[in-house]
């Protein structure tokens, strides 16, 4: 349960971020189109700078890392932030400043452990919490990721789950 205080809310996984498999997945993603300010995607953002946008893709992934999900799902979260920032200059400033602070210390060039440590350091800041909240709703609420989690979503148009496995458990 949550206690008010300075204890970190970051939960380490059973596989540490330096596991080989995780490193491989990360290596593959370096090919992604969402990681460099020179990518088309980063330049297409309406309000946030290209540098801020692509840094946020890395930050959002590190907050809720799912190795089987491509960067496009995290980019979608950042697009949501970008759209909100278009109507809210305080938010735009918060995001630009937050990323600026991280990058002033060369966040993107650090290794995985050091990047995680840098996020733990700022986890109680409004910047971190604003981004974190957006990932929780924007990532897990994105219908395109549901299949990955094994969730089939709205069912009424298909007659519910009555004839589609509501009682199909076979291992009890």
């Amino acid at each position: 349960m949550t206690e008010t205080g300075s204890e970190s809310r970051m939960r380490r996984g059973t596989n540490s971020p330096t596991d080989a498999a995780v490193r491989d997945a990360a290596a593959q993603r370096t090919q992604s189109m969402y990681q460099s300010p020179d990518d088309e995607w980063a330049k297409s953002l309406g309000t946030l700078s290209a540098q801020t946008g692509c840094t946020l893709v890395g930050v959002t992934r590190m907050m809720y890392p799912h190795d089987g999900l491509g960067d496009e799902y995290y980019a979608k979260v950042v697009e949501g932030l970008d759209a909100q920032a278009g109507d809210d200059s305080d938010l735009a400033q918060l995001l630009e400043d937050g990323v600026g602070d991280l990058q002033s210390d060369g966040w993107s060039d650090k290794d995985e452990d050091a990047r995680l440590d840098a996020l733990v350091e700022i986890e109680s800041t409004p910047f971190f919490q604003t981004v974190r909240n957006e990932v929780v709703t924007g990532l897990y609420g994105n219908p395109d990721v549901w299949e990955y989690f094994g969730y089939e979503g709205p069912s009424i148009a298909k007659g519910g789950y009555k004839d589609r496995g509501f009682n199909d458990i076979d291992w009890l």
Partner: peptide
């Protein structure tokens, strides 16, 4: 909560 430990639990959703 956030981080890989949280994400791992979510991976168990099914």
């Amino acid at each position: 909560a956030w981080g890989r430990g949280f994400a791992d639990d979510m991976e168990g959703y099914e």
